[in-house]
């Protein structure tokens, strides 16, 4: 077992009625990393998360947490969960609710209060701590719920679509906080459909499709192994000469711009050397394909 590994999921399966929602899934999350947890709707993501968090019991498989032996779930005191379906007790006061959640996760009352106040300040909600939850805007409620998920400083944090419904300022604030959680040594599992966010934040990714693991590993390694380089070109002149370049595919030619991918074996260096001299290059962008494309290709490839 890796020393920095915090949570290991081994061969976990769950069947509802006759539908196998999660089928023999294994992965681990390390301390101080953010694991992107991806998959199309209905792939078994939420079911897997619920099993780890002890909301559902797996039919088979086990979960190891830290140095503890195999168990059907991670210990609730050390986990924090922001579910995708948001909801809080609307008639409760903000601070009371946060203290309650902190206490349920094992904090002493005074400690829970101090930490809740500190977090409310950080999220610019200090003036709202005595208001009822239902008086808050949707974005504010979302921030309160995020605080409720992490107020007890969990070692393992599950965030399901944490950015949904937040304005850009708060999205940046949240991003910063998630980075801080990682720096402080927490293991973060981030589930999201916003691929740009996943690319910004995650160290490794896990892709589940139809209850099974289809991709798992470091973000860069996966891109290297599965994605050809994507090229964006802006130019002046006659672009038709681009058609004669060898080793490229999927050429889409517009007026003054072109997009194509490099076939395996064609390196960016080779491409630059064989660009036609009949056009004047204004901008050239070569990169691995966005995770978005990789996601779609993997899911569609799996369906074929």
């Amino acid at each position: 077992m890796n020393r920095s590994e915090l949570l290991r999921v081994e061969g976990v399966s769950k069947t509802f009625e006759s539908v196998r929602a999660v089928d023999d899934v294994s992965f681990c999350v390390e301390r101080g990393e953010i694991l992107g947890f991806l998959g199309p709707n209905g792939a078994g993501k939420t079911t897997t998360l619920r099993m780890i968090l002890g909301i559902l019991r797996p039919d088979r498989g086990e979960i190891r947490f830290g140095a503890a032996g195999p168990a059907p779930m991670a210990p609730k005191e050390h986990t924090g969960y922001l579910p995708e379906e948001r909801g809080l007790y609307g008639d409760a006061r903000v601070l009371d609710l946060l203290v309650y959640f902190g206490e349920l996760k094992g904090l002493a009352r005074a400690d829970a209060r101090d930490r809740a106040r500190e977090w409310l300040g950080r999220f610019d909600l200090g003036d709202w701590s005595l208001k009822k939850i239902e008086k808050l805007s949707k974005g504010m409620q979302q921030k309160v719920q995020f605080i409720a998920a992490i107020v007890h400083r969990p070692q393992f944090v599950v965030l399901d679509e944490p950015f949904a419904g937040l304005d850009p300022v708060n999205q940046d604030l949240l991003k910063e906080v998630i980075h801080r959680l990682r720096e402080d040594g927490a293991a973060v599992l981030l589930s999201s459909h916003q691929m740009n966010r996943v690319e910004e934040l995650c160290d490794r990714i896990f892709l589940i499709h139809r209850g099974r693991r289809v991709l798992y590993g470091g973000l860069e390694e996966i891109k290297e192994a599965h994605g050809e380089h994507a090229v964006l070109l802006r130019f002046a002149g006659d672009g038709t000469s681009l058609r004669s370049i060898e080793g490229i595919a999927d050429l889409r030619l517009g007026s003054g711009r072109a997009a194509f991918t490099l076939l395996p074996g064609t390196e960016p260096d080779a491409l630059i050397r064989c660009l036609p001299e009949t056009i004047e290059i204004l901008a050239l962008h070569v990169d691995r394909p966005p995770l978005h494309d990789l996601f779609i290709r993997t899911i569609e490839g799996g369906d074929a």
Binding site: R50, L53, G54, I55, K76, T79, G80, Y81, P83, E85, R86, G87, L88, Y89, G90, F101, L104, K105, Q145, A148, A149
Partner: peptide, 12 residues
């Protein structure tokens, strides 16, 4: 209905 239940059940 309020869906607070998932957070509760991840705590108790």
């Amino acid at each position: 209905q309020s869906r607070v239940v998932e957070m509760m059940l991840s705590s108790v």
